[in-house]
């Protein structure tokens, strides 16, 4: 049995995402240039309960709608490289904007853990977060941590462990849009699933096509060509 897993860290800038990455991986990290883009991703490893995790620190972005190279790199990694878990790091002191990104990730992939960072700072400011309500509303584990003071790490690592070993399951609750949008999604979603099967969330792809995401289309076709080449060579 394969004992190593890949975890991608996603989140807004200034959420302490890199602090979490550093706390996890210590100095066991290196920078890997990825997919030939100018953006390089930091990678590191952590070991927990006989399992190896390779952690990839995605660029900090405000959204994943491919408005910039950073956003494309993060989006492509989550959708096409399919990490075993995508860890979305949120800033507890500005959850509203941070959740926006988390909701986008929930549309893209199934195995998501929402990690609310800077929880000690938030508590000092009198902000109380009920993670159980959020877990229920989002359909994925929500964990409160402080990367800076290493609070909540055992819980986070255990959740990661239980998720990869299949003891818990994620059922991301999708955002329901207004009727007009939902109708349009339904119109093309089935055609998409005929084409891509289960490899990519057809609902998410439908939304991106409706939004006119040309960068995604280009990336999709590029990977299609690459896959064909690999198959022919095999």
């Amino acid at each position: 049995m394969n004992n190593s897993y890949r975890i991608a860290l996603a989140g807004n800038p200034n959420t302490g995402k890199s602090t979490l990455f550093n706390a996890f991986t210590g100095l066991r990290q290196h920078t890997g240039n990825w997919a030939g883009k100018t953006v390089s991703l930091a990678e590191g490893t952590v070991r927990h309960k006989e399992k190896n995790y390779q952690i990839v620190d995605l660029p900090g972005t405000y959204s994943l709608f491919s408005n910039s190279v950073d956003e494309e790199v993060a989006r492509n990694y989550i959708v096409f490289e399919k990490p075993d878990i995508t860890l979305v790091v949120l800033d507890a002191t500005s959850l509203e904007r941070n959740l926006n990104l988390a909701l986008q990730v929930l549309e893209m992939t199934k195995n998501v853990i929402v990690c609310i960072n800077l929880i000690d700072e938030a508590e000092k400011k009198g902000i109380k977060i009920n993670e159980r309500i959020l877990t229920r509303k989002l359909g994925v584990p929500v964990i409160k941590i402080s990367a800076r003071n290493k609070i909540g790490f055992p819980m986070l690592l255990d959740t990661i462990d239980r998720l990869v070993s299949g003891k818990i399951e994620c059922n991301p609750v999708q955002t329901t849009y207004n009727e007009e949008i939902e109708e349009k999604i339904t119109t093309i979603e089935s055609k998409i699933s005929n084409l891509v099967g289960n490899t990519i969330s057809s609902r998410w792809l439908a939304l991106r096509l409706l939004d006119g995401d040309k960068a995604l289309l280009t990336e999709f076709n590029r990977r299609l060509v690459l896959n064909d080449q690999v198959r022919r060579e095999a």
Partner: peptide, 11 residues
Amino acid sequence: GVMRRRLLDLG
């Protein structure tokens, strides 16, 4: 364009 989308993303 990009500026509008960026503003939307920021809330």
